[in-house]
Design a protein around this nucleic acid. Structure first.
Lengths: 343, 343
DNA sequence: TATAGCTACGCAAACCTTTGCGTAAACCCG
DNA sequence: CGGGTTTACGCAAAGGTTTGCGTAGCTATA
């Protein structure tokens, strides 16, 4: 509420000057001078009256909201909270705030949310929802919005993005499994319409070859979403094909969790019979049963980077897209073990 | 950006009427009539020009931001994302948006954030950070802000709050343990400055008596925060006292996770030697090692209720505080087992 | 002593909307 | 046909800020 907040006019009247003078004193722009005597009077009056600049009037005047829309595909995925925290913190340092929205992986909802955010005159958009060929992103760019993509990227160039090196990460996972003696390695792939799902799939094939291992398409299944349920379905599908396998690399942690379920449901054991790797190192990954071997990516830092990229975009008139790719790192836990003999 | 958006004036000029007429047509208030002919022309012109009402000017005029501040103590606690999702969804239906802020359990930061939110003229505040005697909350109320508390409540009356029945929930947990033959039950209590921590502690004592069990103060330890680390510390402390015990009820899931660690570090086993219960049924509680027996509370629904309570407050001039207490439910999983014999 | 140049501040427009009030024209009724 | 009511719309203020421009008084220079 804060009804009846003091305005520039109020403090101007109190001091006996014009409100424009008050404005300039309080904003202290170069090129405009006012006697220190008057300035001091104005400052104390402002303090006494508890003057706070009215954000509506200010925004109306400068045509900026100092608000950034943050669009997340699934807030309940523990990967995102650290990212969001990073975003929010660094945005706050510059006087910006984050408006959070969660599309729940629904493209239609996503579009509605974007409409709302645009209607609100957000100064920029941080999107974690991008598809590889995302028209929504293209539209935003075309309309002149500042956009930075996080985690996922789009194929079209010219967008700022903060991602991790999927190829490097997957290669580490595969190498780890190979070094444990695994030769029949399955892949529970993410949605191919999303950059991470696609790149990790490509990376899996490459890494297998690099290790001199054959990739068997029967040991690959694709998921429609990065969700536990899909991971379970895909893993069950692979298991049902009755090919020998001793390990599976899942395209992310949620899928890996689904793999756990499917493996247990099939009466197999992880890691004794089947090793599992995830991706993201989401919070609590170390608490699972078994603790998940996964590829760690610096979530909090990604949030910071995204916010900084956004602030950079906001600063300049003709924004240069900035692409940051962070290095992931394998963290070995209990879901991977030596390949069982005789497989 | 959206530079050069069409304004009321633009569409007025296009049609050849005054902009006030356009405003009334587009807003369609009763008590003001305009011929259907003109109205139709205005509507199509508005559509063609892509008119969207300027939120800054609108807010300035009506002195409302249609923005609700949501303050969370720890975003990385998986309890909150479902709550936030519930809040955001139901707020969106009425044209409100949520500004999310995360205090990271830091009271000073909390104060800073509240300052920022107030400066932004948020129409209301949903707080998940309340302490039992919270001056910040009292201040907000006094300043006329609409406030609804979620999860935690304050001792002072007159605040809207959405909570769960801590006594009922804890009683269920204790009864469950008692029915499994446990008699020496420990309690890893939450911060006593927070309603949930305090009430669950009280509830624990009551429930023990109700089951005819003695409560041994040596089997109780207090945590300074609802964090895994604290849970580990507290549980280790209890274990170090070398009293016989076969179960522990933790004041929330994160603390329970800490108990897991301490139990393992002490070379004991859960649930074979020591049963553990949590509280909240946070996402992935069923994936832990072992799957956590805990008290489920309807997180998503709490978010919805909180948002609805806020919308109700916003509607009326003299807001009647609404207090909702949701019923929790024990969900039994793998972290509780029959008490070992001979203890 | 003019003139130019500062200094220190005021004036008013602009941003865009909502809304109370005013006012023509059209209508109704007796 | 004259008076009053209704219909349909315009006018302008108000909300609070920023900012280009104007200006009165003073000082320094020629």
């Amino acid at each position: 509420m804060a009804r009846g907040r003091a305005t520039l006019k109020d403090v101007a009247e109190r001091v006996g000057v014009h409100l424009s003078t008050v404005s300039r004193v309080l904003n202290a722009k170069p090129g405009y001078v006012v006697s220190e005597e008057v300035a001091e009077k104005i400052r104390t009056a402002a303090r006494e009256l508890g003057y706070k600049t009215n954000p509506f009037a200010y925004s109306l005047r400068v045509n900026r909201s100092f608000t950034i829309g943050v669009l997340i595909p699934d807030l309940t995925n523990p990967v995102f909270p650290p990212i969001i925290r990073g975003i929010e913190r660094t945005l706050a340092k510059k006087g910006y705030i984050a408006i959070l929205a969660d599309s729940d992986n629904d493209p239609a909802e996503e579009e509605r949310i974007l409409e709302r955010l645009k209607a609100r005159q957000t100064d920029g958009l941080i999107l974690a929802t991008a598809h590889r060929a995302d028209e929504l992103v293209a539209d935003c760019l075309e309309e002149g919005y500042r956009v930075v993509l996080i985690n996922r990227s789009v194929e079209a160039a010219g967008v700022s993005s903060i991602t991790n090196d999927d190829h490097f990460g997957i290669a580490q996972a595969v190498r780890h499994l190979a070094s444990l003696g695994h030769r029949q390695i399955a892949h529970v792939a993410g949605p191919q319409a999303i950059s991470t799902g696609y790149q990790r799939y490509l990376a899996f094939r490459e890494a297998m070859q690099a290790e001199g291992l054959a990739v068997d398409d029967n040991l690959i299944a694709f998921c429609d979403a990065f969700a536990e349920k899909e991971g379970r379905r895909a893993m069950a599908q692979i298991l049902a094909r009755s090919r020998p396998l001793s390990a599976v690399v899942a395209a992310n942690d949620l899928l890996a969790l689904g793999c756990y379920d499917a493996i247990e449901a099939a009466g197999r054991r992880c890691p004794e019979e089947i090793s599992v790797t995830g991706y993201n190192d989401m919070p609590f990954a170390d608490k699972f049963k078994p603790p998940l071997t996964t590829v760690h990516i610096p979530l909090f830092e990604m949030g910071i980077e995204a916010a900084e990229a956004m602030l950079a975009l906001l600063d300049t008139e003709n924004p240069e897209p900035r692409q940051v790719r962070l290095r992931p790192e394998l963290v070995v836990r209990g879901s991977t073990a030596r390949a069982p003999a005789g497989i």
